[in-house]
Design a protein around this nucleic acid. Structure first.
Lengths: 317, 317
DNA sequence: CTCCGGTATGGCAGCGCTATCAATCGATCA
DNA sequence: TGATCGATTGATAGCGCTGCCATACCGGAG
């Protein structure tokens, strides 16, 4: 130590406005010279704020979650928080265990994917008394806060869109994912209301990818026969469907219209470009971060944020 | 507390083999009943082991790093370690700052992308006296440990492969990334040795994506004219090049051969399927985790692991 | 010249755990 | 029978910070 009490150093680092300019400069100079690295574990223990936020997502191999996590990490990083990564897998089988081990790190907040959590997990999260942001879905009864959109409305909107465009023989190439299942229900309900009922479905394991998309369309065409439009539960699957259509010499959208979900980066640039549903993935990460930061600062924040969605019409429909 | 000393509970949790069966069961039962969650911050402070590993990657939006991080996280998770995520951006401009803030969390090890780090960062890492694994590249002088492959050899191998196939008018669609630059040098050197010198290059910002790939090929064709093969610095770019070729009515590989890098999940399923260079991304994460775990357990581990690469010939060349 | 209030700094205690060493106990052995 | 040993449990003392309160100091008011 160089001249002052430890607590003054602590203040120089964390609340510089409480320290005289001269002292501050001197302390900073000594820190720089000595290569002192504060121990945030100790600080966290003493102040009961770890400045850690846990993010639990199924996977980051699929860029749909990766981007949200990136935004979350960036925004929280600006405010001095670091993200603890938890990968729960598909289905979220390891969520409970993950949550238990992650909570023992005393995160200051938790970012969750989806709204379905075991009673034990809910219990644990409530007991932790920290901000919890559930994402990617809507429910009137979140654990704490929520940033998402209505999958049912997405399904309904796409059904109506395709039927409005004149398509009647509809197929779904679909990952067996919980939130996708809600979109499917919305899609089928809305189609039924318009008198379109015989919807073919190929169910594939989550997460979807190009390969599974090709297989999905192959299955659908081989088993179901005549289709004029296929809605896919993700853009990755849609890209596979597009590829399979190409490989089979089907004109898109002439012989087969294709619709994706997510509006991933590549969607505007496939050939033909992919019609899809735009979800502002970055907003999910960003707004979640803002929600947490608001709560850390005792500022109010909406409990439920519906980020909505948008149908993006391109060349594939 | 229920009946025993705190230290006995600590042992029951961390070193159950030191505790009698009866005591162990009793403690576990009380833990389950009371909902006790150990505080690993306090434990980390006392034991000087945080059971945290910092992973610093440019981005996880691009699945090339995401998968390595996923494997790292999974393997370390099995051993009770959690991953702190640090995103340094392209170029790795924030690496220094990130490293400083991350080290104050006292991670037990650090996973780094690449081998180029500022002197201050090297200094800080050495001062931290923890295992450091650099990845995605090779150097004879790593900070500590290394899991990677030779980008120069990749470049050379692809040049020789394309020239062996009879292609002579070569183009590069290339992201301005440090490691990609080494591949390019290898490629150009090997091509020059074979007498092929006039290599057209379109340089694009990192990270590459489908859109940039389309733009890259457009630029190359508009400016350079006749090309018979294009090597791309990533599969994402290659997919864009493929798309642009399709949009322009070029036959692949008849009019233009296309080669990617990375062997991403979609590469075998594009139409035509994409020839590329396979990198075992998962091995990078996994071996890095193993290297760290070995060091935690004082077991020996190779300092430098070359995971190699493999040229994957598919339909696009 | 004292008193007051505000600002800057320091002392003390403790966050919740674990390393270390000590204590206890029954079993074994000479 | 007493000494010895290994196995199990406990007491003590911090880990490196920060919350809380006390103290010192200063300028201005009375």
């Amino acid at each position: 130590m160089a001249g002052v009490a430890p607590i003054t150093v602590s203040r120089a680092i964390n609340r510089p406005e409480l320290v005289t300019k001269d002292t501050l400069e001197h302390v900073r100079e000594v820190i720089a010279r000595s290569g002192y690295v504060p121990n945030l574990l100790a600080g966290g223990l003493a102040s009961k704020r770890s400045r850690l936020v846990a993010a639990i997502v199924p996977t980051i191999g699929n860029s749909i979650f990766a981007e949200a996590v990136e935004c979350l990490t960036d925004r929280l990083g600006e405010a001095g928080y670091k993200v603890l990564l938890g990968l729960s897998g598909y289905p979220a089988s390891r969520e409970d265990e993950l949550l238990a081990t992650v909570l023992s790190r005393r995160p200051d907040a938790v970012f969750l994917t989806g709204i379905t959590h075991s009673p034990e997990s809910r219990q644990r999260l409530l007991a932790a008394k920290i901000p919890v942001v559930e994402t990617w879905d809507l429910t009137p009864t979140p654990i704490d806060m929520l940033v998402g959109f209505s999958h049912e409305k997405v399904g309904r909107a796409v059904a109506n869109y395709l039927i409005d465009k004149g398509y009647r023989h509809l197929g779904l190439v679909w990952a067996s994912d919980e939130r996708a299942a809600i979109r499917r229900r919305g899609f089928e309900d809305a189609a039924a209301e318009r008198g379109v009922t015989d919807i073919k479905v190929a169910i594939l394991p989550a997460p979807g990818n190009l390969k599974l998309g090709r297989e999905g369309l192959a299955k659908l065409l081989d088993e179901a026969g005549d289709l004029d439009a296929v809605f896919c539960s993700s853009d990755a699957l849609a890209q596979g469907v597009l590829t399979e259509a190409q490989a089979r010499g089907l004109a898109v959208p002439g012989d087969l219209a294709i619709m994706g979900f997510g509006d991933l980066e590549f969607a505007p640039y496939t050939y033909p470009s992919l019609s899809t549903v735009r979800i502002d993935r970055r907003a999910i990460g960003l707004l979640s971060a803002e929600a947490m930061l608001a709560r850390f600062g005792d500022r109010p924040f909406e409990k439920i944020v519906d980020i909505g969605f948008e149908i993006v019409e391109r060349a594939s429909t």
